[in-house]
Design a protein around this nucleic acid. Structure first.
Length: 226
DNA sequence: GCGACAG
DNA sequence: ATCTTGTCGC
């Protein structure tokens, strides 16, 4: 299933080249079950001063948002964080968590960018191409690109994130008074579908439930209410 | 050359 | 990402 991820060989140039090749396999057309039955959120955290990579996967009923399963995978960290090469550092653990789930989701929300990336292959896009699963990137900060139009401070408002003249994602105001989320298609999801799909899972927090829950357990912040 | 830079 | 107290605003 999950295609092989190169190990850190200290050759960033090779990894960038691989990203460009894989970016050619990304589909920007909706290719998920409609209506959605299940959805899952993925995020990564670190322990032991960074020596251990902790990936969390939370599977939810796409309609009632009830948690159906949640898993955590811990692997020794094998690569440093390098802007633009995040997927090579976090994908191995994410794949392990995905395999642990009792069922594969119809759609995956991954913490990080989809195609809003220098070579159009952020971690969410890489995750989608490698697993074949439809995916969307939900990031908290811009890696590349800029918003040219103002974003209304209204829940659900969104405006294009562009690089040059190409649209690579959206700035989405998931919550009033909060910085916007950076949403971009990962794989098998159309640019125009991304904002609504993410808002469908936003409740009273800035992050949509799938990602918010995965973030909580991946970062050990689930002790108090779990 | 200089600044920017997901998590 | 992670380390952390107080503080601002609804």
């Amino acid at each position: 299933m999950a295609r092989e991820i190169p190990t850190w060989n200290h050759n960033a140039a090779e990894l960038r080249k691989l990203q460009s090749e894989l970016a050619g396999e990304v589909s920007l057309r909706d290719g998920f079950a409609k209506p959605l039955r299940t959805i899952a959120g993925f995020d990564v955290g670190f322990e032991d001063e960074g020596a251990t990579t902790c990936a969390a996967a939370v599977l939810l009923d796409a309609n009632i948002r009830e948690v159906l399963d949640q898993q955590v995978a811990r692997l020794p960290t094998a690569m440093p964080y390098i802007p633009g090469l995040l997927s090579f550092r976090e994908l191995p653990a994410l794949f392990a968590a995905l395999e642990m789930l009792k069922a594969k989701p119809d759609l995956a929300f991954v913490d990080g960018h989809g195609i809003a990336h220098p070579r159009r292959l952020g971690i969410a896009a890489h995750f989608g191409v490698a697993t074949g699963l439809p995916s969307i990137g939900v990031a908290k900060k811009i890696l590349i690109g800029e918003a040219r139009m103002a974003l209304h401070d209204m829940r659900g408002a969104f405006t294009p994130l562009r690089d040059k003249s190409e649209q690579i994602g959206w700035l989405l105001r998931s919550k009033v008074g909060c910085l916007p989320l950076i949403v971009s298609p990962g794989h098998k999801v159309a640019m125009a579908s991304a904002p609504e799909l993410v808002m469908r899972y936003v409740t009273t927090y800035r992050l949509p439930e799938p990602t918010r829950l995965a973030d909580r357990i991946a970062s050990r912040r689930d002790r108090s209410s779990d």
